[in-house]
Design a protein around this nucleic acid. Structure first.
Lengths: 192, 192
DNA sequence: GCAATTATTGACTGATCATTCAAGAAAGAC
DNA sequence: GTCTTTCTTGAATGATCAGTCAATAATTGC
């Protein structure tokens, strides 16, 4: 053993994530990051590797920590109110951010997919996760008789995931609750 | 009068647009652009101003030329087949691009909104255009008895526009026709 | 022809980019 | 204490960035 590091790795990663999330990969410089995260340049390189590796680490941390969609809203109540609560929570989350940020994985995908295979893999993995959440919940609902047997659960799950993307892009232009809520109204009306 | 320019302004703008569209604003350097568009650096600056002005000009040209959604598909036939044809054409267009590019306005918005007010204005203007197209078509359909009176035309139009965004983001990860088509199936099933 | 105007060219600016080097500081092992 | 290892710090690296300058070339008006 030797001299222990003076900073907390995850805290530094959180700070780096904030900057990458707000500005994207290209618009964020290593000097910006050094200033923002509060540790020395060399420590940053020693700990995370180069800029791209740091970006991927930040993206992974986002998925783990901040991108925590409130799935309990979906799971803790009947299907329709659950979906309504989830989509409303997403609207709240979008409108609460003063900088107009949207999900970091979406901005990362828009900026770097499919050119950047490692970002693409993370975006895909996240999409698969989200889809699986919806499939699980919809399957349960169908088994419980909350949802007609004629529905294609996989297609519905993909549709809901895609709708979440659309809602976020829309929020980039339309930052009023009524517009976004009306989109969600139509989106969920599919379930009758 | 004096020496006339040797290049065609719009042709140069098209070439610049190609690069900005494929890589985004930050990842495209003026040197890249000079190499790609085939005119001298100074000519580029003289003609379009700085990099950001060139980007906005390219974005405007995209809206005018390339972003030409095939609205005739929507207008030249009954509502439901028209919507189906339009969304299918979008899927075709997305899958046809070997680079996985999506609408330049979407990537521009994801990269720069709301930080860049001028990009935001263009993204909003486009959203308004698209929405108006849908509102017009849906209103005509309602007047023609193709669509029930109970439908909120404005909400439906916003929903369709948002769906187009979602479809594009989804295509960043899911590049197979069946998945995208199944999303469109669910999306349009709203109209009965 | 000549003057005036504009286009093109390529070298150039200082700033900023990601990354590394080298020296010093702090801790554990003995 | 000393040795070894790792961390930290700040200056440096060469590359690339957006944008400019100055000289040359080409055209119109006379």
């Amino acid at each position: 053993m030797a001299r222990p590091r003076e900073f907390d790795r995850d805290a530094v990663l959180d700070r780096a994530m904030e900057l990458f999330w707000a500005r994207g990969f290209d618009a964020t410089s290593m000097s910006d990051l050094v200033d923002h995260v509060g540790i020395g340049r060399q420590s940053l390189y020693d700990t995370f590797g180069d800029k791209h590796a740091l970006y991927l680490a930040a993206l992974d941390r986002y998925r783990l920590e901040r991108g925590s969609t409130p799935w309990h809203l979906l799971d803790d109540q009947p299907l329709r109110p659950g979906l309504r609560a989830l989509f409303t929570a997403v609207i709240d989350w979008l409108l609460a951010d003063p900088d107009g940020k949207i999900c970091m994985l979406v901005t990362a995908a828009a900026e770097r997919c499919p050119r950047d295979a490692e970002v693409a893999a993370r975006f895909c993995a996240n999409a698969t996760d989200v889809e699986r959440r919806f499939v699980d919940r919809l399957t349960r609902a169908r088994d419980a008789g909350e949802l007609g047997r004629h529905h294609d659960v996989t297609a519905l799950a993909r549709y809901l995931a895609s709708s979440l993307y659309g809602l976020q892009l829309t929020a980039k232009a339309q930052r009023d609750r009524a517009s976004l809520a009306s989109i969600v109204d139509v989106t969920l009306s599919i379930l009758g």
